[in-house]
Design a protein around this nucleic acid. Sequence first.
DNA 1: TAGTATTCGTGATAATTTTCACAAATGCTA
DNA 2: TAGCATTTGTGAAAATTATCACGAATACTA
Lengths: 225, 225
Amino acid sequence: MERVISIPKPTLERLPLYYRRLLQWREEKVSIVSSADIGKNLGIDSAQVRRDLTYFGAVGRPGIGYKVEELISYLGELLGINNVNEAIIVGVGNLGRAICSYPGFAPYGLSIVAFFDIDPQIVGTKIRGHEVFHVNDLIHIVKRLKIQIGIITVPAREAQKVADQMVAGGIRAIWNFAPTRLHVPEEVIIRSEDLAVGLATLSHYLVREDLSERAEGLDRGISGS
Amino acid sequence: MERVISIPKPTLERLPLYYRRLLQWREEKVSIVSSADIGKNLGIDSAQVRRDLTYFGAVGRPGIGYKVEELISYLGELLGINNVNEAIIVGVGNLGRAICSYPGFAPYGLSIVAFFDIDPQIVGTKIRGHEVFHVNDLIHIVKRLKIQIGIITVPAREAQKVADQMVAGGIRAIWNFAPTRLHVPEEVIIRSEDLAVGLATLSHYLVREDLSERAEGLDRGISGS
DNA sequence: TAGTATTCGTGATAATTTTCACAAATGCTA
DNA sequence: TAGCATTTGTGAAAATTATCACGAATACTA
Ligand SMILES: NC(=O)c1ccc[n+]([C@@H]2O[C@H](COP(=O)([O-])OP(=O)(O)OC[C@H]3O[C@@H](n4cnc5c(N)ncnc54)[C@H](O)[C@@H]3O)[C@@H](O)[C@H]2O)c1
Ligand SMILES: NC(=O)c1ccc[n+]([C@@H]2O[C@H](COP(=O)([O-])OP(=O)(O)OC[C@H]3O[C@@H](n4cnc5c(N)ncnc54)[C@H](O)[C@@H]3O)[C@@H](O)[C@H]2O)c1
């Protein structure tokens, strides 16, 4: 249980932020950045940045910094986003449609290749040129296409049922937006996004007039300045 | 800088989860729960739950547990969601509309009372019976209504501009969905939701066939089982 | 070439968060 | 009332994460 050096969870949450900023720098033809540059840009301590980057192959040069291109490549590899990750989405409602139409996930390797719903009004319509299938066909299609990632954007009470179907189809990772805890076999990975958490913490900090103490976290956190 | 006992950040992220589950229990007429009940339901260690609950007034009774009603009340107070928090949203595109139409934030006190966009095709249309205003009117309206919370769902390159306007209007807390770092005065609270982080961590765990080691975090985390 | 200014990598330390484990409180039963 | 089963609250220990601080590596300049 202590065999391989794994990446600390907080680090793992920062890496995608580095990745995004690095893509920008590449656009801007910046080829070298220092840990201080990265840190200043993202509000993260530079020592933290260096530490984070040592958890995988990244090597910088003293006095110089890190090669943008190299970091992008390493990060892409580590995050599994150099190659395209095909996914399906279940629940083409308000949130589901927003996610489907969002181009911002493409740089992270996401490609949604099939869409499912249960509403007869929605099944059969087209999203980005693709037909929306009935959720009853989910298992079959997922198996045939060997999809590994499933996105759940159905109401909470339906989420477990959908997760079960995904698992039955062989899906290995679930990105869940329904505010409920899902039970899946141990080998299936779940990431739940719970936006209400963000809202509640925001409102908490607001209610404490007590401004003297506010957290500083950046990525997920609350911050002034 | 160490004056008041403040709530640890990880705890603060768990409290909304407790809150949601407690609302459910109340629905189901459950009046008492133990830390073990809460923990089992949310995949959190029961000692952790107890510890979390001690950070604010919550008091349980040995041998019995905690009163659901009481916890809800305490949590609602602490999270600032007992009273309604009025907010505005800027950017009524795909994500903005999804958020506006979502009823799931109401239990967390959110009430979106004004909608803004810049697109002439969108300005003047109605959302839930309310007219969408032009973003130029933002400062004025925010001041008049004394709004404290602003939600940003515009493209990243526009986000800073919008944030500046919010600040100028007197907004004290910003819930930001644009994938960019915002710079605001120190007294303004920012919470950024970055969905790409979730996607990237999911894909990272997927790429490590190395299943032997996966994290266990629940709320924001990755978990099997 | 020597001197200067950067910036990395990292051991050591500090701070934070989680988990353990147990005394004390409570209710139930006989 | 005594004994038993629960469950809380919390010190103390463990684990994790962040920060400090400095030697070594590198480029640049004169
Ligand atoms: N909209 C938001 O801003 C928001 C924010 C946070 C969380 N969420 C969560 O995301 C999920 C979706 O939210 P939404 O606003 O898009 O809801 P929605 O009602 O607009 O969409 C849900 C869609 O799922 C479909 N559906 C229902 N049961 C299904 C099933 N068994 N199989 C397949 N499809 C099914 C419905 O037909 C509908 O199209 C919910 O769990 C919600 O709590 C939404
Ligand atoms: N859609 C998603 O699933 C998703 C996921 C994660 C993050 N985001 C982020 O959320 C934001 C919105 O995404 P979206 O998909 O809704 O985009 P969108 O293009 O559908 O909507 C953006 C809206 O903002 C409006 N707008 C642009 N500039 C404005 C300004 N200066 N003032 C007021 N309104 C303005 C546009 O007219 C449009 O209606 C983006 O920053 C995006 O990166 C979206």
